[in-house]
Every structure is written in structure tokens, then in C-alpha cells.
Simulated assay, not measured.
Amino acid sequence: MKKKIIFGSIGVALIAVLAWFGAKNSKSPIEFETEKPFKTNIVRKTVATGKVVPLEEAEIKPKVSGIIEEIFVEEGAVVKVGDLIATIRVVPNVGSLNSAQGSVKTAQLRFDNTKTLFERNKGLFEKGVISKQEFESAELNYNSARQDLSNSQNNLDIIKKGSAAGMGKTANTYVKAEIAGTILEIPVRRGTQVIESNTFNAGTTIATIADMTKMIFEGKVDEAEVGKIKNGTVLEVSLGAIEKKKYLAKLNFIAPKGTEENGAVQFKIKGDVTLDNQFFVRAGYSANADIVLEKKDSVLSIKEALLQFDKKTEAPFVEVKVGDQKFERRDVELGISDGVNVEIIKGVTLKDEIKIWNKASKKEEEEEKG
């Protein structure tokens, strides 16, 4: 009798357990949350990396070769056109010096000879022995010889000293600012040997000057995006050295030819940066420019994370709620995206509830944790 009671109790317990499991399995194993579409503004941007540099920058080079004798400014100094930057002490070339000295001697001999002839002809003219024409010819030769002697002496002085008498601060030994601005760099020091700029040599840079009130952004954009921008596009420039500050810039140059970098073709762009007096922007600051490629206001949108893609066709779709934890597939046509929200052109309405397919309900999560 006791055995029957025990077996009967076990049977009842088994039936109860099986009934509980059946009830549990009849429910959906996961309860999904949903979200509704909404209207928002979507801006699609790209970022160009680069730096800010002065619009006008000039390298000051010497007009004669020699040794830096004195430097009168420091880096960071503000100069005007014509301000003296440095002076040069000329080290004459032996061959040029010898040739110039020979020219002076030749000119001196010619001058002495024409002077003697001029003084003799002058006396004869005054006595009426020679004509006025002969006298004027002798006078012309004398004046010409005197000028040649003066020129050859000046040329000798320039070769020896870099300047001639009467030139003052216009001499080639004086290095002056050719544009107004700030001295960015002085790569030479007193005693440095410098070479003049000529057809065959770029010359030694004595100073670099730039107008720091006019800055431009220089950066690069990918070939996939360069066709979507144009001159006049507004950029938002962020500087690495200045936090929480953005400067507006207007695009004014897009390179006609790209350069390949790490397997991708990049195109150089430039834009005029609008500065203010809040911060001093230094040349060469690293910068990023946000470029608006496309913008739409108040468009029907969903979060991009709600999208699913067909494994065969890769066509986008969402699952729309049609009942209690029941969903149907809806193919959608997409517009622009900002990486978070995406425009829905066709497929859903504002009233639809879209399945969050990659997130279980909070209740389900709590049960799993329990």
C-alpha cells in the first residue's frame, strides 16, 4: 500500500514538472523591444586632416655671398617692408677681385690720357687753333673716361665690400624684409656663410616671414568624396592645440591631380580660415576640417542599428511588429546616413514599431541574470 502511495506521489510530481516545462516552452524564448521611426535632421560629413599655414610666406635670401655679420631681429618679431634683418660681410672671390683691379688700372690709364688731350685741346680752342667740334669731341672722350673709371672703382668696391660709396642702406650687404609680417624662423646665426640667390642656386634662407593674420587650412580628402565638394563649401576647422574651439573656413582650392598614399588616392584642398582675437593661431598647428557632403532637414529616420540585410541580396530590411511578439519583414529604401541615424525613403511609417533585433527585453535580461 505504501509503495502505491509513493509511486503515485512521484507520478503527480512528474506530471507537474512536465506541465511547467511545457508552459515555459510555449512562450517565445526572447522578448524583443521595439522603436518607432522619427523625424530628424541628418548631416553627412567627412573629415579632412591637415594643418593651418600662413597664406603669405616668404623666404628672405641674400643678394651677395658672404658671412652673416649681424642679425637685428629675433623669431616672433613683427616687421614692416624694408626693415633691416641682417648685414653681410663680403668675402671677395680672388679671380673676380683681380679682374676688377685690372679694370680699374685700365680705366685709370684711359682717363689720364683723355684728360691730357682734353686740357691741350681746351687751350688750342681758346686760341682759335682748333674748331669747336674738335674741342667737344675731346671733352666727350674725357667725360666718358671719367665715368668708366668711376664705374670700375665702384665695381671693385662692391666685389671687396658688397657695396659702393653713396649706396647707403640700399647696398646688397643689407638684408631687408620684403613683406610685412612675423619672423617665423631664422635658420642662420652670426658668422654663418651664406650664398646669394641666382639662376643656378636657390641661395641660403636668412629668414622666413609670414602674415599671421591671414591663415589657410591645408588638408587632403579621399577620391570617393572629392567629387561631392566644391569651391565655396564651408568647413569647420578644429585645431589640436586649441580645445573646444572651431574656426570657419571657406574652401577655395581643390587639387586637379591626386597623389597615392597607402593605396588610396588623396586630393589636396585649401580653405581661407576666419580668425578672431581670442587665441593666437601659430603656423603649422595640426587641424581637422569637418566638410558637409549632404544635409537633409526633418526627414523620416530610424537608428541605423535597426537595419538588417538579406544574406543573398544584401538588400536592407526591418522587422515591423504586427502582434504580440510577432514581426513581419519590410524591405526599405534608404537615403543619407550620418552613421547613427539613416533616412527612410520608403518602407515604414511613423506609426510602425520596429524590432530591436539585437537586444532582448529588460525582463528577459533580468531573468537570464537570475
Rank of each mutant, 00 (worst) to 15 (best):
I186P: 04
E364N: 14
E139I: 01
I85Y: 02
G76S: 11
I291E: 02
K39V: 06
I206E: 05
F135Y: 15
A23K: 15
F267S: 11
I6G: 11
A210Q: 14
G22N: 04
E366S: 13
D148R: 01
G227Q: 00
N341D: 08
T116P: 03
L14T: 13
V342A: 00
R189A: 13
V237L: 10
V78A: 01
V322M: 04
E70M: 04
N341R: 09
N93Y: 09
S96M: 13
W20N: 05
Y285M: 15
I159D: 07
S144F: 07
K362P: 10
D338R: 04
G50P: 06
V104S: 10
S144A: 13
I60D: 01
M167K: 01
G11N: 05
G95E: 14
I242Y: 05
K295G: 05
K132C: 06
I42N: 14
V79W: 00
A16N: 00
V79P: 01
A138E: 06
D324A: 06
A16H: 05
R44V: 07
G11W: 04
G203M: 03
E218K: 14
K2Y: 10
A16E: 02
E59Q: 12
G11L: 13
A58I: 14
S238D: 04
T192Y: 05
V104I: 09
D276M: 03
I242P: 05
N201C: 03
V348T: 11
V237C: 15
V281C: 12
T40Y: 02
E223V: 09
K169I: 13
S286T: 12
G227D: 00
V342I: 12
N121F: 13
I88F: 03
Y247D: 04
A255F: 04
N198A: 07
Q193G: 12
N154W: 02
R189I: 03
N155C: 12
G76N: 12
T114I: 05
Q278P: 01
P54Q: 08
I60P: 03
N141T: 05
